[in-house]
Amino acid sequence: MSDDPYQQAILDLARSADGAGRLAAPDGLASGDSPLCGDRVRMEVTLQGGRIDALAHEVKGCLLCRAAAAAIGRRAAGLDAAQLAALRGEVAALLAGQVPTAPSWPELKCFEPVRPHRNRHGCVLLPFDTLAAALDSAQGA
């Protein structure tokens, strides 16, 4: 496996910017900051029966952060809080070196080359953590 994180798959995922934008009337929202690099992610969600119905994100961050947000934008609708927490755990495990036999989302595989670059793991995880906070905010509303 190459340890160059800038493989074509991750470049394409980031450039897709799936889910980028704002929702007209979000049920919850959250902003997340990376203290290391100053990256900022904003996530907005609407819920239906405790599950994400729609989401939108704004990312002022690096390519890895934008790729993770795009994966979320593409796949996270329909998840509830527990499923999102499990998915976040799967991403963290992947970055720590545990390769899932069948990743929940095919996009997750493109983050494997980030593994040796520990200071960049937070870039990938920030959108997942911010989405969880947005979900909390919606459920607390």
Partner: peptide, 26 residues
Amino acid sequence: DIHPHDVCQVLDAHHVAVRGGHHCAQ
């Protein structure tokens, strides 16, 4: 419009060590 961390990561492949980010000066 390339993020500083992405620039630094590419530079690392050239054995160039530079810092990117807010440099503790937000």
